[in-house]
Design a protein around this nucleic acid. Structure first.
Lengths: 124, 124
DNA sequence: ACAACTGTACTAACACAACTAGTACGGTTA
DNA sequence: TAACCGTACTAGTTGTGTTAGTACAGTTGT
Protein backbone atom coordinates (compact mmCIF):
# COMPACT_ATOMS: atom_id res chain seq x y z
CA UNK A 1 0.00 0.00 0.00
CA UNK A 2 2.73 2.41 0.93
CA UNK A 3 6.36 2.36 0.01
CA UNK A 4 8.70 4.25 2.29
CA UNK A 5 12.25 5.21 1.46
CA UNK A 6 14.10 5.77 4.70
CA UNK A 7 17.12 7.13 2.85
CA UNK A 8 15.14 9.87 1.15
CA UNK A 9 15.58 13.45 2.18
CA UNK A 10 11.83 13.75 2.24
CA UNK A 11 10.56 12.94 5.75
CA UNK A 12 8.67 9.67 6.16
CA UNK A 13 5.51 11.44 7.29
CA UNK A 14 5.53 13.54 4.13
CA UNK A 15 6.06 10.47 1.99
CA UNK A 16 2.95 8.95 3.54
CA UNK A 17 0.94 12.13 2.96
CA UNK A 18 2.07 12.29 -0.63
CA UNK A 19 1.19 8.67 -1.31
CA UNK A 20 -2.27 9.07 0.15
CA UNK A 21 -2.78 12.11 -2.08
CA UNK A 22 -1.60 10.14 -5.11
CA UNK A 23 -3.81 7.17 -4.43
CA UNK A 24 -6.82 9.39 -3.94
CA UNK A 25 -5.95 11.23 -7.13
CA UNK A 26 -5.75 8.13 -9.30
CA UNK A 27 -8.83 6.66 -7.67
CA UNK A 28 -7.29 3.75 -5.78
CA UNK A 29 -8.51 5.24 -2.52
CA UNK A 30 -12.05 6.56 -2.49
CA UNK A 31 -14.24 8.59 -0.15
CA UNK A 32 -15.27 6.56 2.85
CA UNK A 33 -12.45 4.05 2.55
CA UNK A 34 -10.97 3.14 5.87
CA UNK A 35 -7.35 4.07 6.40
CA UNK A 36 -5.11 1.53 8.10
CA UNK A 37 -4.89 2.20 11.80
CA UNK A 38 -1.94 4.15 13.14
CA UNK A 39 -0.65 1.11 14.97
CA UNK A 40 -1.12 -1.44 12.21
CA UNK A 41 0.55 0.79 9.64
CA UNK A 42 3.40 1.52 11.99
CA UNK A 43 3.99 -2.21 12.35
CA UNK A 44 3.64 -2.93 8.65
CA UNK A 45 6.09 -0.22 7.66
CA UNK A 46 8.31 -0.68 10.72
CA UNK A 47 7.89 2.99 11.47
CA UNK A 48 7.29 4.54 14.86
CA UNK A 49 3.57 5.14 15.52
CA UNK A 50 4.24 8.78 16.28
CA UNK A 51 5.50 9.30 12.75
CA UNK A 52 2.38 7.73 11.28
CA UNK A 53 0.27 9.81 13.59
CA UNK A 54 2.00 12.94 12.43
CA UNK A 55 1.07 12.10 8.85
CA UNK A 56 -2.54 11.38 9.79
CA UNK A 57 -2.87 14.55 11.82
CA UNK A 58 -1.68 16.57 8.85
CA UNK A 59 -3.96 14.71 6.44
CA UNK A 60 -6.85 15.45 8.77
CA UNK A 61 -5.86 19.09 9.02
CA UNK A 62 -5.87 19.28 5.23
CA UNK A 63 -9.30 17.69 5.13
CA UNK A 64 -8.23 14.62 3.18
CA UNK A 65 -9.24 12.22 5.89
CA UNK A 66 -11.79 12.35 8.67
CA UNK A 67 -10.82 10.94 12.01
CA UNK A 68 -13.35 9.43 14.38
CA UNK A 69 -11.83 8.79 17.79
CA UNK A 70 -12.11 5.15 18.69
CA UNK A 71 -13.25 4.14 15.20
CA UNK A 72 -10.49 5.07 12.86
CA UNK A 73 -9.64 7.38 9.98
CA UNK A 74 -11.51 7.49 6.69
CA UNK A 75 -10.97 9.16 3.36
CA UNK A 76 -13.13 12.27 3.43
CA UNK A 77 -16.00 13.03 1.08
CA UNK A 78 -14.26 15.84 -0.72
CA UNK A 79 -10.79 14.28 -0.73
CA UNK A 80 -10.83 13.84 -4.49
CA UNK A 81 -11.72 17.47 -5.07
CA UNK A 82 -9.01 18.62 -2.70
CA UNK A 83 -6.20 16.70 -4.38
CA UNK A 84 -7.59 17.63 -7.77
CA UNK A 85 -7.40 21.32 -6.93
CA UNK A 86 -3.93 20.95 -5.56
CA UNK A 87 -2.69 19.15 -8.65
CA UNK A 88 -4.27 21.65 -10.95
CA UNK A 89 -2.24 24.29 -9.16
CA UNK A 90 0.86 22.53 -10.35
CA UNK A 91 0.43 23.90 -13.82
CA UNK A 92 2.99 26.50 -12.76
CA UNK A 93 5.52 23.75 -12.16
CA UNK A 94 4.77 22.64 -15.68
CA UNK A 95 5.66 26.05 -17.01
CA UNK A 96 8.87 25.97 -15.03
CA UNK A 97 10.05 22.62 -16.26
CA UNK A 98 9.14 23.28 -19.87
CA UNK A 99 11.09 26.52 -19.74
CA UNK A 100 14.10 24.61 -18.54
CA UNK A 101 13.73 22.00 -21.24
CA UNK A 102 13.38 24.71 -23.85
CA UNK A 103 16.66 26.30 -22.79
CA UNK A 104 18.25 22.86 -22.79
CA UNK A 105 17.48 22.52 -26.46
CA UNK A 106 14.47 20.25 -26.28
CA UNK A 107 12.20 21.15 -29.17
CA UNK A 108 8.54 22.04 -28.84
CA UNK A 109 7.70 19.01 -30.95
CA UNK A 110 9.43 16.65 -28.52
CA UNK A 111 7.52 18.13 -25.60
CA UNK A 112 4.19 17.87 -27.38
CA UNK A 113 5.02 14.31 -28.35
CA UNK A 114 5.50 13.57 -24.65
CA UNK A 115 2.16 15.19 -23.82
CA UNK A 116 0.40 13.08 -26.45
CA UNK A 117 1.98 9.89 -25.17
CA UNK A 118 0.97 10.55 -21.58
CA UNK A 119 -2.63 11.33 -22.44
CA UNK A 120 -2.77 8.22 -24.63
CA UNK A 121 -1.66 6.05 -21.71
CA UNK A 122 -3.86 7.67 -19.07
CA UNK A 123 -7.26 7.54 -20.78
CA UNK A 124 -9.23 8.53 -17.71
CA UNK B 1 23.41 37.43 -8.59
CA UNK B 2 22.28 34.76 -6.18
CA UNK B 3 19.19 34.68 -4.03
CA UNK B 4 19.35 32.47 -0.98
CA UNK B 5 16.38 31.38 1.06
CA UNK B 6 17.60 30.43 4.51
CA UNK B 7 14.18 29.09 5.42
CA UNK B 8 14.12 26.63 2.54
CA UNK B 9 14.47 22.94 3.19
CA UNK B 10 16.97 22.85 0.35
CA UNK B 11 20.46 23.37 1.77
CA UNK B 12 22.13 26.69 0.98
CA UNK B 13 24.99 25.05 -0.89
CA UNK B 14 22.53 23.24 -3.13
CA UNK B 15 20.67 26.47 -3.79
CA UNK B 16 23.92 28.01 -4.98
CA UNK B 17 24.70 25.03 -7.20
CA UNK B 18 21.25 25.13 -8.71
CA UNK B 19 21.43 28.84 -9.42
CA UNK B 20 24.78 28.51 -11.13
CA UNK B 21 23.36 25.74 -13.28
CA UNK B 22 20.35 27.88 -14.16
CA UNK B 23 22.40 30.90 -15.08
CA UNK B 24 24.69 28.82 -17.26
CA UNK B 25 21.66 27.23 -18.86
CA UNK B 26 19.99 30.48 -19.80
CA UNK B 27 23.29 31.98 -20.90
CA UNK B 28 23.78 34.62 -18.23
CA UNK B 29 26.99 32.93 -17.17
CA UNK B 30 29.30 31.82 -19.95
CA UNK B 31 32.42 29.72 -20.27
CA UNK B 32 35.44 31.51 -18.91
CA UNK B 33 33.43 33.88 -16.72
CA UNK B 34 34.99 34.43 -13.34
CA UNK B 35 32.99 33.23 -10.38
CA UNK B 36 32.84 35.47 -7.33
CA UNK B 37 35.49 34.45 -4.79
CA UNK B 38 34.49 32.23 -1.93
CA UNK B 39 35.10 35.00 0.56
CA UNK B 40 33.42 37.81 -1.35
CA UNK B 41 30.33 35.73 -1.99
CA UNK B 42 30.19 34.64 1.62
CA UNK B 43 30.19 38.25 2.69
CA UNK B 44 27.66 39.33 0.05
CA UNK B 45 25.22 36.60 1.01
CA UNK B 46 26.09 36.65 4.71
CA UNK B 47 26.82 32.95 4.51
CA UNK B 48 29.72 31.14 6.10
CA UNK B 49 32.66 30.73 3.68
CA UNK B 50 32.66 26.98 4.28
CA UNK B 51 29.18 26.69 2.88
CA UNK B 52 30.18 28.57 -0.26
CA UNK B 53 33.25 26.42 -0.56
CA UNK B 54 31.13 23.31 -0.32
CA UNK B 55 29.07 24.51 -3.27
CA UNK B 56 32.16 25.38 -5.30
CA UNK B 57 33.81 22.04 -4.57
CA UNK B 58 30.74 20.25 -5.80
CA UNK B 59 30.47 22.44 -8.89
CA UNK B 60 34.12 21.68 -9.62
CA UNK B 61 33.55 17.97 -9.13
CA UNK B 62 30.69 18.12 -11.60
CA UNK B 63 32.90 19.89 -14.09
CA UNK B 64 30.82 23.06 -14.20
CA UNK B 65 33.59 25.29 -12.96
CA UNK B 66 37.37 25.07 -13.07
CA UNK B 67 39.27 26.13 -10.04
CA UNK B 68 42.76 27.58 -10.25
CA UNK B 69 44.36 27.84 -6.81
CA UNK B 70 45.36 31.39 -6.07
CA UNK B 71 43.46 32.76 -9.06
CA UNK B 72 39.86 31.88 -8.62
CA UNK B 73 37.08 29.78 -10.09
CA UNK B 74 35.82 30.04 -13.64
CA UNK B 75 32.92 28.65 -15.59
CA UNK B 76 34.29 25.66 -17.49
CA UNK B 77 34.39 25.30 -21.28
CA UNK B 78 31.79 22.57 -21.41
CA UNK B 79 29.56 23.90 -18.65
CA UNK B 80 26.77 24.68 -21.08
CA UNK B 81 26.80 21.18 -22.50
CA UNK B 82 26.77 19.66 -19.04
CA UNK B 83 23.73 21.56 -17.81
CA UNK B 84 22.05 21.01 -21.15
CA UNK B 85 22.43 17.25 -20.83
CA UNK B 86 21.21 17.31 -17.29
CA UNK B 87 18.12 19.30 -18.16
CA UNK B 88 17.33 17.12 -21.11
CA UNK B 89 17.25 14.23 -18.64
CA UNK B 90 14.38 15.93 -16.92
CA UNK B 91 11.97 14.89 -19.61
CA UNK B 92 10.99 12.11 -17.22
CA UNK B 93 9.89 14.68 -14.68
CA UNK B 94 7.77 16.15 -17.43
CA UNK B 95 6.02 12.83 -17.92
CA UNK B 96 5.42 12.59 -14.21
CA UNK B 97 3.87 16.00 -13.81
CA UNK B 98 1.72 15.73 -16.90
CA UNK B 99 0.38 12.41 -15.65
CA UNK B 100 -0.60 14.07 -12.41
CA UNK B 101 -2.28 16.93 -14.22
CA UNK B 102 -4.14 14.48 -16.42
CA UNK B 103 -5.54 12.68 -13.41
CA UNK B 104 -6.45 16.03 -11.89
CA UNK B 105 -8.71 16.74 -14.81
CA UNK B 106 -6.51 19.13 -16.77
CA UNK B 107 -7.23 18.59 -20.44
CA UNK B 108 -4.62 17.85 -23.06
CA UNK B 109 -5.54 21.10 -24.77
CA UNK B 110 -4.73 23.13 -21.67
CA UNK B 111 -1.36 21.45 -21.36
CA UNK B 112 -0.49 22.04 -24.99
CA UNK B 113 -1.60 25.64 -24.67
CA UNK B 114 0.90 25.99 -21.84
CA UNK B 115 3.63 24.45 -23.96
CA UNK B 116 2.90 26.88 -26.79
CA UNK B 117 2.97 29.85 -24.47
CA UNK B 118 6.30 28.89 -22.95
CA UNK B 119 7.98 28.38 -26.32
CA UNK B 120 6.58 31.67 -27.52
CA UNK B 121 8.11 33.51 -24.59
CA UNK B 122 11.46 31.74 -24.69
CA UNK B 123 12.39 32.18 -28.36
CA UNK B 124 15.98 31.02 -27.91
C1' DA C 1 -18.65 -5.74 31.94
C1' DC C 2 -14.57 -6.74 29.57
C1' DA C 3 -10.97 -7.35 26.18
C1' DA C 4 -9.26 -5.52 22.11
C1' DC C 5 -9.33 -2.37 19.27
C1' DT C 6 -9.31 2.77 17.69
C1' DG C 7 -7.11 7.84 17.93
C1' DT C 8 -4.72 11.27 20.89
C1' DA C 9 -1.28 13.63 24.08
C1' DC C 10 2.96 14.30 26.10
C1' DT C 11 7.88 14.30 27.51
C1' DA C 12 12.54 12.89 26.73
C1' DA C 13 16.05 11.53 23.95
C1' DC C 14 18.46 10.17 19.72
C1' DA C 15 20.48 10.80 14.96
C1' DC C 16 21.76 13.11 11.23
C1' DA C 17 22.86 16.94 8.19
C1' DA C 18 23.47 21.63 7.40
C1' DC C 19 25.72 25.21 8.96
C1' DT C 20 28.89 28.08 11.63
C1' DA C 21 33.32 29.45 13.78
C1' DG C 22 38.05 29.88 13.83
C1' DT C 23 42.44 28.96 12.27
C1' DA C 24 46.05 27.70 9.17
C1' DC C 25 48.59 26.69 4.82
C1' DG C 26 50.14 27.49 0.05
C1' DG C 27 49.74 29.73 -4.61
C1' DT C 28 49.02 34.25 -7.37
C1' DT C 29 49.06 39.04 -8.31
C1' DA C 30 50.39 43.88 -8.29
C1' DT D 1 55.49 42.31 0.65
C1' DA D 2 50.62 42.96 1.17
C1' DA D 3 46.35 41.47 -0.37
C1' DC D 4 44.12 38.65 -2.63
C1' DC D 5 42.83 33.66 -4.22
C1' DG D 6 41.30 28.38 -3.03
C1' DT D 7 41.91 24.62 0.32
C1' DA D 8 41.93 21.87 4.75
C1' DC D 9 40.72 20.73 9.24
C1' DT D 10 38.55 20.41 13.82
C1' DA D 11 34.93 21.62 16.92
C1' DG D 12 30.57 23.07 18.05
C1' DT D 13 25.79 24.64 17.16
C1' DT D 14 21.22 24.17 15.44
C1' DG D 15 17.05 22.27 13.60
C1' DT D 16 14.15 18.63 12.62
C1' DG D 17 12.80 14.09 11.71
C1' DT D 18 12.39 10.18 14.25
C1' DT D 19 12.17 7.09 18.11
C1' DA D 20 10.84 5.46 22.80
C1' DG D 21 7.72 4.90 26.36
C1' DT D 22 3.69 5.87 28.74
C1' DA D 23 -0.95 7.29 29.51
C1' DC D 24 -5.85 8.51 28.60
C1' DA D 25 -10.44 8.30 26.30
C1' DG D 26 -13.87 6.56 22.87
C1' DT D 27 -15.77 2.33 20.14
C1' DT D 28 -16.69 -2.40 19.13
C1' DG D 29 -17.98 -7.15 19.80
C1' DT D 30 -18.53 -10.89 22.89
Amino acid sequence: MFVIDLMSRIPVYEQIIKQVEEQVLIGVMKSGDKMPSVRSLSIKLSINPNTIQKAYTELDRRGLIVTVPGKGSFVSDNATELVGEKSRGKIENLTEIITELAYAGVTKEEVIETVETVYKNVEV
